[in-house]
Design a protein around this nucleic acid. Sequence first.
DNA 1: GACCTTCTCACCTACGTGTTAAGC
DNA 2: TCGCTTAACACGTAGGTGAGAAGG
Lengths: 201, 201
Amino acid sequence: MATDVRGSTFEPKVHLEDWKLWEQFSAVQTEMIVTKTGRRMFPGYRVKMSGMDPNAQYCVLMDISSVDENRYKFQHGEWVVAGRGEPQVPQRFYLHPNSPCSGQQWMKEIISFHKVKLTNSCGNSADGKFLIHSMHRYQPRIHIVRTDDVNTLHLQPMSTFAFPQTAFVTVTAYQNGQITKLKIANNPFARGFREDGAKTK
Amino acid sequence: MATDVRGSTFEPKVHLEDWKLWEQFSAVQTEMIVTKTGRRMFPGYRVKMSGMDPNAQYCVLMDISSVDENRYKFQHGEWVVAGRGEPQVPQRFYLHPNSPCSGQQWMKEIISFHKVKLTNSCGNSADGKFLIHSMHRYQPRIHIVRTDDVNTLHLQPMSTFAFPQTAFVTVTAYQNGQITKLKIANNPFARGFREDGAKTK
DNA sequence: GACCTTCTCACCTACGTGTTAAGC
DNA sequence: TCGCTTAACACGTAGGTGAGAAGG
């Protein structure tokens, strides 16, 4: 916990945006498509900050960590363990492009990671792409580092936040029809597949 | 000029991309549209770096400076001075989003400012938008600062580069028909106005 | 009227969707 | 056959063009 010059303390907190949507997906076990070229997550990962020192500099990072060491399969309408998964490799961090930036700035606006992509091809890894395995469970995480020095980030203490309702199983094609329905109903880019003429954004 | 630990010297140089295209426009006096919401420049401003210290950190900036204090008009097929222009205000710098970054990284790829926009409305100024007056001459410039500290940029020595063939007159509607033809012939977004079925990108 | 600005429009690029069929 | 992956596709969103009409 950091202390400013006057002695009062700051404890950064992270608030998940669109949590109602995330919970709708989570209730039927969220699936995320992974492709060679990279696929966005939906819902998009967006958060709000509070409790930061307005005058201090922070870096905000994201990563996607393995939930366990299992491989999964979708059988008889549910996800079950299907043997040992791929070895967990420490995931590279994605540094939010606004970093470094003052606490005041971070707290002012929604911090979006919606451009992040999931890929299953080493060759196509680039900034903003997470290399992960299909049929595995993952958990996105947010990290906050109180520093203005991007180069020594790895040496600094880090606060980590994770929201259980954002965990997901990776797939190359949707397994659960309910997930497909939720994606089509809520993702504007999938509007072409809606049966009704819903105009809701 | 900077010196590294072994005593050898580095002198960053900037190379303009698409210079042939820029010169085609320049030959008939380049015009750039300026709008309330902001309009991109075409050709896009792109450069390559060389001569940097691969291991040093640099920031790269862009600005758009007034060429003179005149207002211009297009008369009898050419641009002529039409009285005193608006007072020159020091232009805000646009910090390239990759900043700060190592010389090695900067030199590896083309550095693009194609998303920069020109606006004539104060209200709509935002990051990546330059507020400038219509019917004035301007000159884009590149600045290189050897530092990894974005916060003290203004205190550091700066190397400035400008390419005369990228100077332009601002307009709210094209004045010279030859400019319109060149824009339509070369800008992919204007392909709808090409008479032939040219597929050239 | 002459000159400049603003707005709406059709038409394009670029790319995010799930679908489907083919591949392994 | 079965399970999973890939690539081409139609159909969206999002936004960059100059044209042309309207406004000042």
